[in-house]
Design a protein around this nucleic acid. Sequence first.
DNA 1: CTGAAAGCGCTTACAG
DNA 2: CTGAAAGCGCTTACAG
Lengths: 337, 337
Amino acid sequence: MAVTIHDVAKHAGVSHTTVSWVIHDDPRITEGTKIKVRNSIDKLNYHPNVNARSLIRGKSNTIAVIVYFFSSIFELEVLKGIEQYFDEIAGDYNVNIYSTRGNCKRKEKILKEILYGQRADAVIMLSMNPGNDLLQEYRKENVPLVLIEESIKGALTVKNDNIGGAYMATEHLIKTGRKNIGIVVGEYESDESGLSPSERLEGYKRALEDYNLIFNPDLVFTIDNYYFEEGQVALQFILEKEIHVDALFCAAGDTVAIGILDQARKSGISIPEELSVVGYDDIHAAALVSPALTTIRQPIESLGITALEMVMKALSGKKVAIKDIVFDQKLIVRSSA
Amino acid sequence: MAVTIHDVAKHAGVSHTTVSWVIHDDPRITEGTKIKVRNSIDKLNYHPNVNARSLIRGKSNTIAVIVYFFSSIFELEVLKGIEQYFDEIAGDYNVNIYSTRGNCKRKEKILKEILYGQRADAVIMLSMNPGNDLLQEYRKENVPLVLIEESIKGALTVKNDNIGGAYMATEHLIKTGRKNIGIVVGEYESDESGLSPSERLEGYKRALEDYNLIFNPDLVFTIDNYYFEEGQVALQFILEKEIHVDALFCAAGDTVAIGILDQARKSGISIPEELSVVGYDDIHAAALVSPALTTIRQPIESLGITALEMVMKALSGKKVAIKDIVFDQKLIVRSSA
DNA sequence: CTGAAAGCGCTTACAG
DNA sequence: CTGAAAGCGCTTACAG
């Protein structure tokens, strides 16, 4: 069906070896032969079978990016970052994006298939942990693995200073006179949760402690999917249960925080008078909602760019120091707190 | 290096053929042998080489999704749709997501590599046109190709009723008394632009015509990347040049429309009194900005779900009627118009 | 019930 | 300067 190297060889009147060498621009082939063969390639519309090539080379020229789910602008921005300089940094590689669709078994399957089934030559994982066993297997096989927003001993990591960011957010609320500060945060206890939720919780706790406020576990509200609607639900819950908070640090990000703002308006809660809200991410909408959202800005695209750079460096055989690369966060004060 | 089928065979004390058959659960193999072999597979942590398998099968069990760029929430939502029921609909397939990074040559290269290099067994394209030549090549090779938000004669298409949506938006502005209605729209003349911009422009024109307003080409403002900032720039341009408009239909989507709102606030233009704005998409932020954005809601996730269903149907050998599947749009009236 | 053999489409030493 | 041969890791008729 498809045109193979043999068809080209026959058409050009040479052996298939010669065709292969023309493709690889081997100096042993005369210019005349090259032209002849290239002509046949064009005429027959020949494209090498990627699978055969990868099989024999033992590498696929592909970088795999694994996301947990296409749930939020976070993924989008990181992917943008990875793409931004892709041609310059990783010209002859392809990117393949996989989603685990929130399934841990799938995650492991994908990671194993990539490693042992040779789907890709390197991996970038977003907000996900390969687990220690798989990490060791990757190291043994010498396949580069870079983690974004996740850290595990022995892995290459690019991340935000979530502890610092959460600290700043909480400190801001304290300094503006808030006493009962709740936190809305992603699931932080499961294996699948990624590191940032627990780090942000940690930063929140540290700030409370430094300012002599008591940490109250009842003021920790967790959400699962980082959806807008979960912010609405969280505030509904707080109001129904009559839980007393005068501020919410929405560590789960701006989209959820905006859900909180939305519910506040619907429930007649005035912001920031009755309730201060600080988000995380500084998405575009944060500046535009009413009241405008005070939030923490993180350089999301940079995470992607840096992760790709690390992967390429490792792929080129250079030693990459195993040391977390951490990006600073910035407090953006607007009207909501 | 990696464990092959031969290693498993040796470990289990059978031939590699037997191992292959165990993997495929061939009824000719006795249960005892199967257990023995599966044990070895687990012990050695064996995973079949995907490339070898694809090579021999002549198919890769992969569906390729091609996006133009990870630029907007639109891509994110479509991907969400494709994922949503993936396990149910397309259990043993993988998805690979490619981005052309806005490069037409890359697009063609990807499409040819998929087709002739056997990267994937079917393709879903987002807001992109394969071009007639490539479409014919896909049809000849019988590789399913489904287009989202793009239509070309002879291709399977899933799209929004952009003409209808734009008509509704424009009609709403007309009925609320606006006379000088501009349109902000994505690049619609280049090959790479996708179909929706020109369709939305068409809907806009038709509404003007039906209500006896003259179409003025000077009131068509185009943008390239669907970025927030482009909305700001567009309004700045209009103000600087003192172009007289009392309404803008931002067919380029809500993110850009919100950029317009932002610039309006900065420039002291009151919305909707001095300028009415209607967006397109109904993203979450649309309801939350101030003033809340009047917009057109489109079922983006459904596009992805339906496209995947069509691909799977075609892949299963069933005839799929070549007839555009068109989703209805809905006008959501808020405060900005 | 299991194995030896051919072959998928390519690459790459090895001859000539 | 070019070709015949072996092999990458699998699958699948074909024997036995």
